[in-house]
């Protein structure tokens, strides 16, 4: 099920570059504006899988208040930028999470919250739990803890913001956009 990507070679990256005289001077400020906008308006997808979701809700609630960072929860994946996978992912649940991820528009980011989403957690020996969501979606930030405290999740979000501030607009961390494989779930789904 994993998404296998061929690492981009240096020659390939060079071949994408379009030589415009003074192009960097034009593109760099535009890029900085885009980075600023993207990092300051991370809309998250409303869904929680298990106990970590309680901590995620607490992070959004008045005491910690994610809205300070411009983060609001959107119900539809079409309007979301970041997916916080909060909790364990069973083998049955995994295709649906992959599907939600595929429905999100680029650029999109994933935060694996808690030990289970990162690596299986205490259910690592179970046959029904996926050992980490990075088996089927590319994860940007791993937030450890069981469950992580809201401060820890906010720390992860700030780390993600730093990461977005470094990435280029046309490519993601210098990589090519991740290849998307549609997952077919039954006939009527």
């Amino acid at each position: 099920m994993g998404v296998k990507e061929k690492p981009v070679t240096k020659e390939e990256m060079e071949s994408w570059r379009i030589p415009i005289p003074g192009g960097a001077a034009i593109i760099a400020p535009v890029e900085r504006v885009a980075q600023w906008a993207r990092k300051n308006s991370l809309w998250s997808l409303t869904f929680g899988l298990s106990c970590c979701a309680i901590e995620m809700m607490s992070t959004a609630a008045p005491r910690y208040d994610l809205d300070r960072f411009g983060m609001i929860f959107r119900a539809t994946p079409r309007q979301a930028d970041v997916m916080i996978v909060a909790g364990w992912v069973s083998v049955k649940m995994a295709p649906y999470i992959k599907r939600l991820y595929d429905q999100m528009p680029e650029p999109k980011y994933v935060i694996a919250m808690g030990g289970c989403a990162c690596a299986g957690g205490p259910y690592r020996d179970s046959i029904t739990i996926v050992k980490g969501v990075d088996h089927f979606v590319p994860v940007d930030v791993y937030v450890y803890g069981c469950p992580p405290r809201p401060e820890n999740l906010i720390n992860g979000i700030l780390k993600l913001q730093d990461k977005i501030a470094r990435e280029h607009v046309l490519t993601r961390n210098g990589d090519r956009a991740p290849h998307r494989e549609p997952i077919i779930i039954g006939e009527n789904a």
């Binding site: 885009a34 906008a37 300051n40 208040d65 411009g70 650029p107």
Partner: peptide, 24 residues
């Protein structure tokens, strides 16, 4: 508190949202 860290008292928040939405 509502938006706080983007611009003064979060006044740049909507601008960031708008630019991001146009780039999506």
């Amino acid at each position: 508190l509502g938006p706080k860290h983007v611009g003064w008292q979060g006044l740049g928040q909507t601008l960031a949202d708008a630019i991001k939405l146009f780039l999506k």
